[in-house]
Design a protein around this nucleic acid. Sequence first.
DNA 1: GATGAATGAGGATTCATTCAT
DNA 2: TATGAATGAATCCTCATTCAT
Lengths: 214, 214, 214, 214
Amino acid sequence: MPKDTFFNLKEEKQQRILKAALHEISVHGYNKASVTRIVKDAGIATGSFYQYFEDLADVFVHIGHRAVKLKGQYMQQELEKTRSSKQIDMESFIRAMYRGGLRFGLEHEEYFRAAQSFLQLKDTELYNRMFAGVEFNEIYIWINQFVGEAVQRGELQQGITVALFLQLITGINTTIIEYLIAAKPGGEMSKEDLETLCDLGLHILLHGIRNSDN
Amino acid sequence: MPKDTFFNLKEEKQQRILKAALHEISVHGYNKASVTRIVKDAGIATGSFYQYFEDLADVFVHIGHRAVKLKGQYMQQELEKTRSSKQIDMESFIRAMYRGGLRFGLEHEEYFRAAQSFLQLKDTELYNRMFAGVEFNEIYIWINQFVGEAVQRGELQQGITVALFLQLITGINTTIIEYLIAAKPGGEMSKEDLETLCDLGLHILLHGIRNSDN
Amino acid sequence: MPKDTFFNLKEEKQQRILKAALHEISVHGYNKASVTRIVKDAGIATGSFYQYFEDLADVFVHIGHRAVKLKGQYMQQELEKTRSSKQIDMESFIRAMYRGGLRFGLEHEEYFRAAQSFLQLKDTELYNRMFAGVEFNEIYIWINQFVGEAVQRGELQQGITVALFLQLITGINTTIIEYLIAAKPGGEMSKEDLETLCDLGLHILLHGIRNSDN
Amino acid sequence: MPKDTFFNLKEEKQQRILKAALHEISVHGYNKASVTRIVKDAGIATGSFYQYFEDLADVFVHIGHRAVKLKGQYMQQELEKTRSSKQIDMESFIRAMYRGGLRFGLEHEEYFRAAQSFLQLKDTELYNRMFAGVEFNEIYIWINQFVGEAVQRGELQQGITVALFLQLITGINTTIIEYLIAAKPGGEMSKEDLETLCDLGLHILLHGIRNSDN
DNA sequence: GATGAATGAGGATTCATTCAT
DNA sequence: TATGAATGAATCCTCATTCAT
């Protein structure tokens, strides 16, 4: 966790530094990220960096936590749009998870990239440090509960667990986001097409990849 | 591309070197891969390495190509199982793509890991070098054609392109493989459960994540 | 020399700071001593440190001076035990020098360690700064005079100068102290053995290392 | 221990590097020694240094071992001068130890300084690494045996152990050497005075510091 | 006087790549 | 062709010292 000295900084400076660090990971990945570039980008001295953070891993874990939290907020927002009715049905739930994840990825490409990089760390000590306790965030607890019950009631395909459920949604999510990002540079995809594409992922989650109208 | 000197080596030595390089990427990821470790593992001199390859990227691109080719073979095999009838229907096709990819990942975990690492490189010069021309492999040409036609006939969900179609299959594939690999150490999953899980991915591709029997 | 600001501090705070600095040198040696650790240990701010002292060397010189002065006091005390008779003979004198030094080292291990560290600095600018003027302390003036006269009267081995005389006593002293300190942890040496050992150094100074009874 | 790559170097280069490292320690002490200065002084690349040695400590341990060995040789030489008679008496033995140590210090001032620096490390892991096994050198085994027997026969002052015996000789030795080195710059001490001074230490070891003719 | 954030030169160490043998 | 020593820029990180508050 960042040291107190970091949190004592003026908000603007904190943001500047985090932005530089986030940018660094999103571009070079966690493994090739460089303190030197971060401090140059943030306009601070090398020594300062180490007065704010224990080491490189420290900032990254912090950024990871922010990413998880932020994505959680996006998902929560989407959930709230539907929660007018007390009971939330599975389809609405999946839609909220998916849409939240999608908006998060599209509106925060750098966080999305960083998160992708972190996921590569699987099985490392840092990965555990990063995601330890994360599942105990408000929203994630709720998700766990909801999906867990659905699994028990047999509302989901045989074999799906809570973990796998989320991974599948995230997987489709990621695929669509990557595709959209890749498409952007060459022609700025029309609003319509974008909308179609977003719905596509959701549709696949709900009905499979085939067009069953056929 | 590896230099001629590499291909002139005895088959066994070539394999030894590639195996070492593959192992290195699969363990440390492309970014942290080290020439030093590779040559030590392969039992060759540092200098020799540079007589076989332009540089580190060179081996990696080569390995990437092998991975793509190998995966293509797995998919082809699956296709051939169904191709008894001249006409192949969409469901059989999807099943073949999916099963091929799944078997590839499970039987060649190191290639799978390496490939995951390469996918992280998106937008880099190396990524382009790696995947340039790949789509012109025999099987991939055929896939392109088949899917292309299906898209035009509207057999797939609105908005799906050839590229996206493959990415989606690969995405689900990857999610399932990761899940299986992660599950292994803690309890050796029964044959049955494994089978169920494999089918699950396929089912999702075909019918969505919900249990529509409900 | 410490700045006035230092001497204006409450006695207790001065002591706290000096104690921290002394501890630091005694543990890490002059070369690896760290301002950071000192201020943390003393419970003051980094900036304060530089309001009290010119720099790190400044505290150290100060501590060195205190060590010299303190050791002088121990020697003086021992001298006074014998000075009942106006005339002090050479043997009594040597005994006093030796015993004073020994007690100083054993009762103030940290000062002893620090002093050892300082002696390593020979030929450096700091060393000169440290020991410049030291010989003009009350007791040292007297010693100089006494030994000087003894040298002139030929009461000491040919070739001995005042400086060498003191260095030799200190040398034996140090050897014995180091030996005692090293012996402590493994078995708590009996009072008797300790006494024997202390006398041993003195005996060597007076009669050589051999047992001349033989 | 230095790596093979180091010992494979041309003798001249090995010497150049060791000389640079030795010089570095003798001037700055072990604690402030800098790889950068060493490589610059030796005229090699930073990277090369780490192809020869594990790390800084590695060279230093090596140099320490050389110092111990070299000093042993000096003592052995002196012993051999006397060993015409089969039996060697205690006085001749002490003289040999003392003279050997003295010549070593005077003819190899840098090794002497380095050794002084190493002795400061007492109680550190490096110290143990440095001196582990050293006592098992040919000459030191012999010394141990000889002194051990003398102690048992009561030929030495009550309370002296083998370890203490050597420390005392070394202590006097060091004092004299330091004094001589300090005296040099201001006037190059006459051959005679130097001789006198050397004998002085020996005399003290044998008969104490007083002139007992008086 | 007191504080503690800011600084940046300097520390050890790594590693892809070259090159002489 | 095979070798492995040589290179040096780049890595992360430390720490005495300054300075604005």
